[in-house]
């Protein structure tokens, strides 16, 4: 076992993990943060997307030991403490950008990172920027509109 210290949603957390423990399993099974989901085993679907040091990362494609000392943000950490949704969460709600909601935490985290990384996104930019996050319910249109709205770039 290897000792790992992560700052998760602003709180320092120490845990002992096998080196092979995927970050997503450390978050879910060791820290009880089950909002981050697992949708595939080929780094294709993005359901497990979290922020590592502020940038989107697929937490199924990182070992927890690689994140030692890192700042991790999960879906549980983006709304305000009083329950006010993050603007991206709110935009998803207002644009009906989720149905079953399983891809949603990863999609929201990817979108938060995307609009930060690429200012001034247009629709094509949002669509390509979300290429690594799969959703089976929505056909993406309302997700794209939500991200555009949250980015302040328009959208319906």
């Amino acid at each position: 076992m290897t000792a790992v210290t992560l700052t998760v949603n602003g709180t320092e957390r120490s845990l002992d993990v096998e080196p092979r423990t995927l970050l997503v399993h450390a978050l879910r099974d060791d820290l009880g943060l089950t909002g981050t989901n697992i949708g595939c085993d080929s780094s294709s679907c993005g359901a497990c997307t979290v922020l590592v040091d502020g940038q989107s990362a697929k937490s199924c494609t990182m070992f927890a030991v690689q994140a030692d000392g890192a700042d991790i943000t999960t879906i549980e950490g983006v709304a305000d403490a009083d329950g006010t949704l993050h603007p991206m969460q709110q935009a998803f709600h207002e644009h009906h950008a989720l149905q079953c909601g399983y891809c949603t935490p990863g999609m929201v985290m990817a979108a938060i990172s995307l609009v930060e990384e690429y200012p001034g996104l247009d629709e094509g930019g949002v669509r390509h920027g979300l290429e690594g996050n799969l959703c089976r319910c929505t056909g993406y249109q309302n997700i794209v509109d939500a991200v555009l709205a949250a980015a302040g770039s328009g959208g319906d």
Binding site: G35, T74, E76, A79, L85, Q89, H93, G101
Partner: peptide, 9 residues
């Protein structure tokens, strides 16, 4: 349904 799904709850 959305808030619980949007927050990981």
């Amino acid at each position: 349904e959305d808030p619980a799904l949007l927050t990981g709850e």
